[in-house]
Design a protein around this nucleic acid. Structure first.
Lengths: 162, 162
DNA sequence: ATCAATGCAAATAATTTGCAAAAAG
DNA sequence: CTTTTTGCAAATTATTTGCATTGAT
């Protein structure tokens, strides 16, 4: 019996907490469950709202104190789409090197992977005297529908595909 | 007689202002000169400080109101290194698709370009139904000196190479 | 003259923090 | 018991904005 990606992520994060001798409080559990039960990108505020549905005692401070743990574990990464607040992406357990394309107009986000890019990256990085710890590639583009019709048919469609 | 990259950038930005019917005030001129006289990455606060050396009447508000013009022109891009404030990179006139490697430990930043990555990017992007408007690739890594000696010899060396 | 652009200082909003109380181990 | 973690509310800090004035065209 193998775990799904999300169960695996949850397990790995719990191990991460254990290694650092951090306690499993009910609030942390609710936050962890929330983070890995979704595949959506979220803001701190959204995470607070969602986690409170599982455990109303979760506070904003705890959410903000927990987020750095996720990023430190490498299971969640921060994305900067130039919006006011940061976005968090919980899909890195399954796809540790995935990238993003963002539509300039409708903000639709598509995730993709490329072994080829990964290889070139590590070659260049090595030549420059570094080794890769992590990478983040973000392409801003236009939907072809926008190019053709001048308007983006996906307006307000924020689904994330792979 | 051809312009240097920085002179070219300045010229292009002035044209950008003209196209938008924006006025060339002395403050804007000081800010533009400051931005394109450096190759360093800078924060809004640094830009304010530097621009004030050329024209002490430059205010923080004007700096913040001018920065979006630079990014809109495509001649400057915002970088997110996970620090408190945003960093701005004025080197895009010469190298419109350059990328960054950041050392995890000493924060040294190296810029690099790769035609090969650019090509793969546009191919993937096209297959996904988009066209590339811009891209941002950021690799976090470790200096080999860090890997070997456990310490980064470049500590506090923030030079930017290409 | 006209209207955009400015400086100032106040407002905003995301994130962080001090502290006393609560809960994990 | 001891130490970590919590919620609360106040603090912080980068960035934005309203407004009366200045300056470019």
């Amino acid at each position: 019996m193998s775990l799904t990606g999300k169960e695996e992520a949850k397990k790995r994060f719990m191990e991460f907490l254990a290694e650092k001798n951090l306690r499993i409080t009910s609030q942390r559990q609710a936050i962890v469950d929330t983070v890995f039960d979704t595949e959506e990108h979220f803001t701190a505020e959204q995470l607070l709202e969602w986690a409170r549905k599982k455990d109303p005692s979760v506070s904003r401070a705890t959410v903000y104190r927990t987020l750095p743990l996720f990023t430190e574990s490498g299971l969640v990464k921060v994305l900067d789409f130039g919006k006011d607040s940061k976005y968090y992406d919980p899909n890195y357990a399954d796809h540790p090197n995935h990238n993003h394309i963002i539509c300039q107009d409708c903000d639709r986000i598509v995730e993709f992977e490329s072994k080829q890019i990964e290889e070139i990256e590590s070659e260049i990085t090595r030549k420059l005297g570094f080794s890769v710890a992590s990478q983040k590639l973000q392409i801003t583009g236009q939907c072809t529908s926008l190019k053709n019709k001048g308007e983006c048919k996906n307006k307000s469609d924020c689904s994330s595909a792979r």
